[in-house]
């Protein structure tokens, strides 16, 4: 058939595309993990791998067991619902072994993470322009972080 003979270059192009598609499928077969799609659009093995990660956070119940005084102080103030590790960072190692001391916090930097003034925050939320407010002094100079409101008698 002359049509097929005269279309030889088109068959070559089709063959090239077929080779390209097969190469793609081969690379896909090699690169896509076998457990992909086992439960959903992710690697099935990821679940057991993530579950095997070491635990970093102890949870506030662990903190309350020993630091009852801080827990009581916190409950009376504005930070009652702020989790201990929200400010102190992950403390599972400290909870397992109290001799492992958590790092000392710099309140001049820590507090403004939440309390830096921003038009996007609700108006009632305490927020300050830190430099104008305290000229870079650590917030704990005036505020007790566990119960930050300042009463008429001074810092609580």
């Amino acid at each position: 058939m002359s049509v097929f003979k005269e279309s030889g270059h088109l068959f070559r192009l089709a063959a090239l595309y077929a080779v390209g598609t097969l190469t793609f499928l081969f690379i896909r077969g090699v690169l896509v993990p076998k457990s992909f799609g086992q439960y959903g659009h992710y690697r099935g093995n990821a679940i057991t791998e993530i579950a095997a990660h070491p635990i970093h956070f102890a949870g506030h119940q662990a903190c309350d067991t020993c630091h009852t005084d801080v827990q009581q102080l916190k409950q009376s103030g504005m930070h009652a619902r702020v989790n201990c590790e929200g400010c102190h960072g992950p403390l599972a190692k400290h909870a397992d072994d109290p001799s492992v001391q958590p790092a000392k916090l710099d309140t001049a930097k820590l507090c403004v993470r939440c309390h830096a003034a921003s038009a996007a925050k609700p108006r009632g939320f305490p927020q300050v322009a830190a430099l104008d407010h305290s000229n870079g002094l650590p917030c704990e100079t005036c505020h007790k972080p566990h119960s930050p409101a300042i009463s008429a008698g001074g810092a609580k």
């Binding site: 049509v3 005269e6 279309s7 270059h9 088109l10 070559r12 192009l13 090239l16």
Partner: peptide
Amino acid sequence: TLGSNNISDRALAIDERV
């Protein structure tokens, strides 16, 4: 060229149509 040097009128007419 993909190894094909066929540029006969017939082949080019097929190219045109495709």
